[in-house]
Design a protein around this nucleic acid. Structure first.
Lengths: 192, 192
DNA sequence: CCAAAATCATCAGTATGCTGACGAAATGCC
DNA sequence: GGCATTTCGTCAGCATACTGATGATTTTGG
């Protein structure tokens, strides 16, 4: 199977190489941390929850640049492994409030060496000076292209505290069942 | 939601930034090429098939660094869209032989500007000199870490032509049904 | 020539992402 | 105060990945 010039052109585009580096870095993490049974994504969520006790899922997504429609599964797996707990939001009843367990804190502490060696291995092929330059450019690319993905990072966006009529209402008549205004309809979606 | 120092540390590790850059680059491709209804992965497979008419699936994986257990679905979608054709291997009957259709060739030609602008947009935040340096380091990282992922690139590995008893046997008594030697057993897998 | 080992495509199970929609709840505006 | 709009968590549907196993076939070693 001879390589053609077109292959060489295509295989070295930014998009293709970035996809491969992501796969390599994911595999390195799983390998280094295999005894801890968490994925890079789960680890990221766990660390953010540890740093922000009681955070809700959407705010968590804004910090670690995840998709809202995926985070439910991720924290569900963390909960099943008893690394975090999930409560219904006490203030805003639409939200779920996330907090870490002692077991989760222990995992964060114990996995540290594996995480550090993963990051080291990813950049290992570069010379020390190059590593700094590469990381600076990587940060630059991600930050300036931030809004391009569905899940941009928005760490500055705080959860606004409740302050409207709902808060006042709840102070007097808690948890009155609410009448539904929408009817369930079948899901229709073009299949392209 | 205040950012903590731990957040800043974690959010700037290579692994996290690489994951985000991959998401950004994927989203840019879909956006630039949205009228063509192919994903970056499907496009890569299509180009490789165009460059290597009659290639089988495993050799295709070796070129574009895909996983063998995923490629079946990908080429299945290309086939459904009539961009490629899939035949049973004429020489080695375990393989599927892939070839592009006129419609697929047309797509490769027409999508070119969108692909080019995607690659341009990914690197746009960098200064021209930095782009070269970044790409050189990216190539270096991927090539030296190649064997770390499940699907390393092995472009030099040719499909060996059939040469054993099977070929001679087939020349005389084609397609004799073969007695099975293994019994189906239930799938057991640790759930970790 | 034949049995053991290797290889090809596929499958089930799990995990991640994205799109678009939805019910529930909260906010904004008049 | 009451309705329109937004927001939160979730869901269905699709696409990509990886692990380990399986059946069919081919290669290898003797």
């Amino acid at each position: 199977m001879q390589m053609s010039n077109d292959d060489n052109h295509f295989l070295e585009t930014p998009g293709h190489l970035i996809r491969r580096l992501q796969q390599i870095s994911f595999a390195l993490f799983l390998d280094q941390a295999k005894e801890f049974d968490v994925t890079p994504v789960q680890y990221a969520a766990l660390v953010a929850i540890n740093n922000h006790p009681g955070i809700d899922q959407t705010a968590l997504c804004n910090i670690i640049a995840f998709d809202r429609s995926t985070i439910g599964d991720v924290v569900g797996r963390l909960e099943k492994k008893k690394l975090i707990k999930r409560f219904n939001g006490a203030i805003d009843r639409r939200t779920k409030s996330l907090s870490i367990t002692p077991s989760g804190r222990r995992l964060i502490r114990d996995i540290e060496p594996a995480v550090a060696s993963t990051q080291r291995l990813i950049l290992a092929p570069l010379r020390p000076g190059e590593r700094k330059a590469f990381m600076a450019m990587l940060r630059h690319l991600v930050h300036l292209n931030n809004e391009r993905s569905r899940a941009p990072s928005r760490p500055q966006e705080a959860r606004r505290p409740l302050k409207g009529s709902a808060l006042r209402a709840r102070e007097q008549a808690p948890k009155a069942p609410v009448r539904r205004r929408w009817r369930r309809r079948g899901v229709r979606r073009a299949v392209r």
